[in-house]
Amino acid sequence: MRKNSVAVRKVVGKLVTHLILMIGLVIMIIPFLWMVTTSLKEIWEVFTPQMQWLPETPIWQNYVDAWNYAPFGRYYLNTAFVSISVVVLQLTICSLAAFALSRLEFPGRDIIFYGILGTMMLPGTIMLVPSYLVLHWLGWIDTYWALIIPAVFNAFGIFLLRQFFMTIPKDLDDAAIIDGCSRFGVLWRMIIPLSKPALAAIGLMTFMGQWNSFMWPLIVTNSENMRTITVGISMFKDQFSNMWTLMMAASTTATIPLLILFFFSQRFFIEGITLTGMKG
């Protein structure tokens, strides 16, 4: 009898868990489904009191129209170019710095390390205006430089890579050097290949951050040609404030690359977040 009631309670508990998770999941996912179906509707289907989930016939033309109203192709290329450049440069700079801070011995090393960690405490509110002025003086406003260079440094990335590099036995360095490898050879041929998981996690988080970044591109770009996709969508929304079908088409195109990337590299995303979440 008692055994039975325990089993029943377990089943009920599981059902309740499923139910709550399902309701939550609906809230998490429905906006995306609604985004996609709306992007395929006629505009009058949006402005009707009897809302339907699916369009009568899917209007693929919405995507063509959205891309014609604003140069989303160009936004796409800009975003991809900037994001990839930032990832490559950031990983290079972080790896070099982390290599120096973990494998080499030289005066001032630890002070530099704590200095780099300390920069994480600098509040963004202070940096916004003067960083903009620096770019202005460099003549970089409205260029790719302004979008890329300010993002290539990642203090936390340096910290993570340094911790990761330190788990690789130093004896391997010595062995490699005996075999005639240079210091940079050690980094490039040995440490980097061994650190692929950490590099992938940091790189993915950076890529995601860049692809989605909004405020900085909004501030440092003026011309249509330099806009990234997030700025493009924001401008599009201001211009065509009621063209929901086109806006949803634009949002869908902005969202899909990251979703694809996510489904192929979920593990690294989760790792990246778990790593960055341990900041505290």
Binding site: F214, I233, M247, F262
Partner: peptide
């Protein structure tokens, strides 16, 4: 499923929620 909103662009999903 619960993770998906986090990886998508805040601007894109903010537009969706405005709608």
């Amino acid at each position: 499923g619960y993770f998906i909103p986090t990886i998508t662009s805040a601007v894109a999903v903010a537009v969706v929620w405005t709608f």
